[in-house]
Design a protein around this nucleic acid. Structure first.
Length: 130
RNA sequence: CGAGCGGACUGCGCGGCCGCGGCGCAUCCCGAAUGCGACGAGGAAAGUCCGGGCAUCGCAGGGCAGGACGCCUGAUAACGUCAGGUGAAGGCGACUUUAAGGAAAGUGCAACAGAAAUAGACCGCCGCUUUGAAAGCGGUAAGGAUGGAAAGGCGAGGUAAGAGCUCACCGACGGGACGGUAACGCCCCGUGCCAUGUAAACCCCGUCCGAUGCAAGGUUGGGCUGUGUUCAUACGGGUUGCCCGCCCGAACGCAGCCGUGAACACCGCUUGAGCUUAUCGGUGACGGUAAGCCUAGAUAAAUGACCGCGCUCGACAGAACCCGGCUUACAGGUCCGUCUCGAAGU
RNA sequence: GCGGUGAUACUCAAGAGGCUCAAGAGGCGCCCCUGCUAAGGGCGUAGUGCUGUAACAGGCAGCGAGGGUUCGAAUCCCUCUCACCGCG
């Protein structure tokens, strides 16, 4: 899954400039269409010390992993959590689902029509239908 | 049984399922692909406070400056660390704490108070003179008052009053004998005592220190054009803060174009003063010998989510070149001791 | 990861072992000036916590936190906390 990470500073600044923002209670995401499905988590020093930051990143990655198949089209996504005292997987997963429903449900329809998508996209749309 | 003291260890466990990191093997459509396998954070990984290794610069040159340490003996690659001892302080005790060299080498500082702060007569006490009270002169550091500190302490003798003026004891200083590697201890003799504190103030003495840190540094990969600055007996650059000395002969900056994953890839990057067990030497820190073991290596940076069970319901906390220490944070739990004190019983 | 700098009232800050002293300025409060305001001028408040008083006065603590050295520490020495800066 390493290939699906966004690493370059250039990419970050580009996505932040042109990407669309969507907010939920526990986190914000910035997304833009892309040729492959890619993502990154944004956890700076303001969130706490290394133990807290590491846990936060794991939770976000796990949440994204479980919901990645719900995306209709391949996107580049930045996950930005909201500062809080405690973080939970359940809240991240729920809010990520909400955002996808709000923003992407319409985008998921064309994915069903286009059959010539990469193997990834094909299986995804199938599962989403179920 | 209660209250302590010292030391050592541990840091939720088991199962299922999805997922992550590099590694090994296999497969194929040879890709940052898929499958399988074993492995995968700490006692502090933390703070970055010390000491090393390693790397580059310098070229193993000198001086000044600067910094660190400081009872003794040992351990160690080294240390500001550790071990054992000495002195001092605290505790009934087991024990604990301790930056603990030098103040007759010199300089500085000691506010306020107080008569006086490194030297002294304000009150008081005593004597003499004059006198109505009182004043003057002299003696005196026992008492008062001030202060953190007031001229060794305390008792006796002594005296006009006093004073190491004299004496006993304690302290201090000097010398000697004995024990100990030494710090030092202990005993004897002598000296009436001979200079307050501060060196985490400058300093002196002794020991030690080149600078920069893996963003060190190396490999692959780079050309063209224009232009500017400086320079030949001095200038520029490098060398530690400075000076001397030494090295290099061209060095550096700006703009544009081509090219470029370049804030990239790979190496450094994990086998090491390594770990475990046994045994020998040593009071101990530690060292020797033998056998066995290989135990994270990421780079937007790997341990998580869900379910079930158990219990004491899980603290502090996440490797980033590697080691030895120190310091700080921490839910609890376990074990050890010819350990200490108190109570009760025998 | 590595290296460095700093912390003093609400804000900006001086002080570098004793006293004048926790300076000074902004801000804040009152007064003058004005028909009213701004600007200007003057005066002063007293700073924070605790204690204390009828109310003042006064006392104690306090310079990021905790120890130590010293007769005495904002200042000297350790440990910790927080903030900020630099890096091929």
């Amino acid at each position: 899954m390493k290939s699906l990470r966004i690493k370059k500073k250039k990419d970050f600044t580009r996505i932040l400039r042109v990407g669309k923002r969507a907010h939920a209670e526990s986190l914000t995401i910035v997304w833009t269409p892309s040729d492959v499905m890619r993502y990154a988590v944004c956890v700076g020093k303001k969130y706490g010390k290394s133990v807290v930051r590491n846990r936060l990143k794991r939770l976000l990655r796990e949440a994204f992993r479980s919901k990645a198949e719900c995306f209709g089209i391949p996107c580049a996504v930045l996950l930005i959590p909201r500062e809080a005292k405690e973080y939970s997987y359940a809240a991240f997963a729920r809010d990520l689902g909400k955002i996808i429903r709000k923003e992407k449900l319409l985008a998921a329809r064309p994915a069903d029509d286009v059959e010539g998508l990469p193997a990834n996209g094909g299986t995804l749309s199938e599962k989403e239908g179920v």
